[in-house]
Design a protein around this nucleic acid. Structure first.
Lengths: 147, 147
DNA sequence: CCGCCAGATGCAACCGCATTGCAGGAGCGT
DNA sequence: ACGCTCCTGCAATGCGGTTGCATCTGGCGG
């Protein structure tokens, strides 16, 4: 009617190309993450998609998303998983940095952080590097210096 | 009797200096972590201390340990907390790097990793930096190059 | 256009880590 | 030795995530 919106966006094609079925849940999650500027938890996704997707369905979509390579899963300091889409750059570097605000709890993706893989002891091989910085974001900064 | 062992080690003094009581559970946990060369999970600690400390007591000791500044808590990729003692260097830098083996699941502390705090967007302040590298440790390395 | 089958969904039960409340016991200063 | 406060232990609860199973549907062949 008035909101066919995008034709399910180009995601349909991407999904199909992966040999998976194009379902409402997948498209919805992908669109949501696409426009999110930070990693979202399952809970946040569930609430954002007020549409009645089952918890389990979302977990499965997220699982699929991770091992299809379209997104990653990061472990929050509060023992919850957060998800975000894999960016081309990110995939290339295999490195992803996040900032977690202690106050509002939101997690931001830092793209510009260089953070080279550190030297490991002999015999060790790195696969993934998780770099999480905790502190206060611009909005929650307890500005002790009003000037 | 035969194993008064160290006089509860010098930990007693450290604990007391913090204004806390010297209890068997605290001393045991501190001694255990002192000799562990990697971060231990609550479960691992519970099993190592076959002595009958209650789960909850251990959780509380670990909590106390963290906010007394004697140790830190890191979040494992498998959603469990791991604990290790804070080293003098570590406290100074406020930075701690860990390596987690995907195969055996053990977590090692990397002391030599420099990893300077990265440049943050304006208005952001960092408090803690968590740097976790995932891969294979020397023992579990699937040596594709036997030579 | 119809029917089929693998794959996706929804429901409900389950698991493990961690947290909380409360009563009893131990540390340590007086 | 006394007593106050903190610590311990037990039990119950919360929460994020996972699993099993029946049903439904996307997508393709006939």
């Amino acid at each position: 009617m008035s909101a066919p919106a995008t034709d399910s966006s180009p995601w349909a094609g991407r999904i199909h190309a992966l040999g998976a079925r194009v379902t409402p849940a997948r498209v919805a999650v992908l669109q949501l993450l696409e426009h999110a500027e930070r990693a979202l938890s399952h809970r946040e996704i569930e609430e954002a998609l007020a549409a009645g997707f089952d918890r389990v369905t979302l977990y499965r979509v997220l699982d699929w998303l991770v091992d299809s390579g379209l997104g990653h899963r990061v472990t929050d300091a509060e023992r919850v998983f957060r998800f975000s889409l894999a960016q081309a750059e990110t995939r290339a570097h295999g490195l992803h940095a996040h900032f977690r605000c202690e106050d509002c709890g939101k997690v931001f993706c830092l793209d510009e952080v260089p953070a080279p893989a550190p030297p490991l002891p002999a015999g060790f091989s790195s696969h993934t590097v998780e770099y999480t910085i905790t502190g206060h974001c611009a909005r929650c900064e307890p500005d002790e210096k009003p000037r």
